[in-house]
């Protein structure tokens, strides 16, 4: 498969922020700052797989509590079969709204979305998005796929 060159981490963050808005989650998700408490990502993950990310799990996510990231990250993300991918530093997202780290985190959630049972719905939504966003999303998926373990 061809690759499209290294990802610009800021562009990745911006494009995936646009993508995550297509989930129509309750929490506002227009800016990097909106994402820092982890609530949007938890709600997006629940839409991706409401059996795995069930109500008991999401009840551990509190908008005003600082340890949401450990819940989202350890339970939601680490199960993916990828190697050699620099995992996001969630403390930088929570404390400094770091867009590069947020981009990595959203990239992993994108990986969940395009591998889940309802992937058709998510992929078709991506295909309706602006071409520049699609291009970044494609590159992000290609990067993940290149690091997938069998």
């Amino acid at each position: 498969m061809s690759t499209s060159g290294p990802l610009d981490r800021l562009e990745l963050c911006e494009s995936l922020l646009t993508w995550v808005q297509t989930f129509g989650v309750e929490a506002q998700c227009k800016t990097v700052e909106d994402m820092t408490n982890g609530v949007v990502m938890a709600q997006a993950l629940q839409k991706i797989d409401e059996v795995y990310f069930n109500d008991a799990w999401i009840s551990r996510i509190k908008p005003d509590v600082g340890d949401n990231w450990s819940v989202v990250f350890s339970y939601g993300i680490l199960g993916q079969h990828i190697n050699d991918f620099t995992l996001p530093d969630v403390s930088l997202i929570g404390e400094h709204s770091d867009p590069a780290e947020l981009g990595r985190m959203l990239q992993l959630i994108l990986g969940c979305a395009v591998n889940c049972e309802q992937k058709q719905e998510y992929i078709q939504t991506i295909m309706m998005m602006e071409e520049s966003v699609q291009h970044v999303v494609m590159t992000a998926i290609q990067e993940l796929m290149s690091k997938e373990t069998p």
């Binding site: 339970y75 295909m127 290609q142």
Partner: peptide, 30 residues
């Protein structure tokens, strides 16, 4: 005209990629 051709090519690459993703076997979630 060249721009239109380049645009169509990009569109084709994107469509090919996402269509191949659609036909890929679904992995385990999470």
């Amino acid at each position: 005209d060249a721009n239109m051709k380049a645009g169509a090519a990009t569109e084709g690459v994107l469509a090919n990629f996402f269509n191949s993703l659609l036909s890929k076997k679904t992995g385990s979630p999470g």
